[in-house]
């Protein structure tokens, strides 16, 4: 079959150029922020103390979340073609539009997660706060750390799922149009949150606690990725076609095949490294090689999650219903 389209160029094929790496970065950082909120809430609510409470790690994770989210929001702002009109996001609410839910959700999550961050700061770390009013606000919020942790846990789940729903509602893009995608993004978000908490935690016990959580989440993510592809293979022709870039060994689709191969290496490696850490952990302090493995596992998880986002964002735009 030969197809000629008069008026065709890169712009008359707009589905080839909808969203770029900036949106993928936003989805990634949004996921990381969601994961940090979830993990920090878990740490505070479960009182990791008995297994070696590392309060600074809880504090850092909670404080880091809104800033990571704001960096992500900066990238999505950069992607807007008409930035001066962006105030319209907050002058309207469209219940059928996930992006509308997202913009209002982000407007809610950023301040609440900041309040949560302030509530987690204990007396020992109040010196971090430069302004007196922040210290006073933190004092007032300290008693509400548990309810705030619960709220932020919910907001973290919302944010993690939302980044997937944003893509999965597009019927016109078969690769994204899967109910598994929001769950995959949520698992990935929680996994990156755990990985980053491992990196910023000080005590060995806290690192091990979040490594154990991450082992389950990495395994879940691997299973969900496989199910995601299996779902497409067994679905309609446009869905089958939509995953072909990942299995076409041509120069045109090289980046998707490379992404697939990298993911097939990164996640299992991260899983094995994490399992080794947990099995070999003895004594109070971590050996330098164990610490290196832990950090490497966490970095692999973060890299893998970014590859998932960027590969799906780009490949989804190649998929069509016809």
């Amino acid at each position: 079959m030969e197809i000629t389209i008069t008026g065709m160029n890169a712009i008359t094929h707009p589905h080839l150029d909808i969203w770029n790496w900036m949106v993928a970065t936003y989805l990634f950082l949004g996921g990381v922020a969601a994961g940090l909120l979830i993990m920090s809430a878990v740490a505070n609510l479960r009182n990791v103390g008995s297994e070696g409470k590392d309060h600074p790690s809880c504090v850092r994770a909670a404080l880091l979340a809104p800033f990571v989210l704001m960096v992500g929001m900066f990238f999505i702002f950069l992607d807007l073609e008409n930035k001066l009109h962006s105030f319209w996001f907050f002058l309207s609410f469209k219940p059928a539009s996930p992006m509308s839910w997202g913009s209002w959700g982000l407007a809610l999550i950023v301040p609440i997660s900041m309040l949560y961050g302030l509530s987690v700061i204990t007396e020992d770390h109040k010196s971090w706060l430069r302004f007196e009013f922040l210290k006073r606000l933190s004092d007032r919020l300290n008693p509400y750390v548990r309810p705030l942790a619960m709220i932020n846990f919910g907001l973290g789940i919302f944010l993690g799922i939302y980044t997937g729903i944003l893509l999965s509602v597009f019927v016109a893009r078969p690769l994204w149009n899967s109910s598994l995608l929001p769950i995959l993004f949520l698992a990935s978000a929680a996994s990156t949150g755990a990985a980053l908490t491992v990196l910023i935690a000080g005590k060995k016990s806290a690192k091990l606690y979040f490594t154990k959580i991450d082992i389950g989440l990495i395994a879940l993510e691997i299973v969900l990725i496989l199910l995601f592809f299996a779902g497409h293979i067994t679905s309609t022709e446009p869905h089958r076609e939509s995953i072909m870039p990942f299995f076409s060994f041509t120069s045109e689709y090289f980046m998707f095949v490379a992404a697939w191969i990298l993911l097939a290496l990164l996640f299992p490696m991260a899983l094995v490294l994490a399992l080794l850490e947990v099995r070999e952990s003895e004594g109070e302090e971590l050996s330098s090689s164990a610490l290196l493995r832990m950090k490497l596992s966490a970095v692999l998880v973060l890299t893998g999650a970014f590859i998932v986002r960027i590969a799906l964002v780009y490949a989804g735009q190649l998929s069509k219903l016809t």
């Binding site: 008359t12 707009p14 909808i18 219903l321």
Partner: peptide
């Protein structure tokens, strides 16, 4: 009211939309 978020371009199964140079 258009912010140029491109959600409509992603949503259109007929690829009927584009972004103007004005965004």
């Amino acid at each position: 009211r258009c912010v140029g978020c491109k959600a409509c371009i992603a949503a259109c199964p007929y690829d009927a939309r584009y972004i103007t140079p004005e965004g």
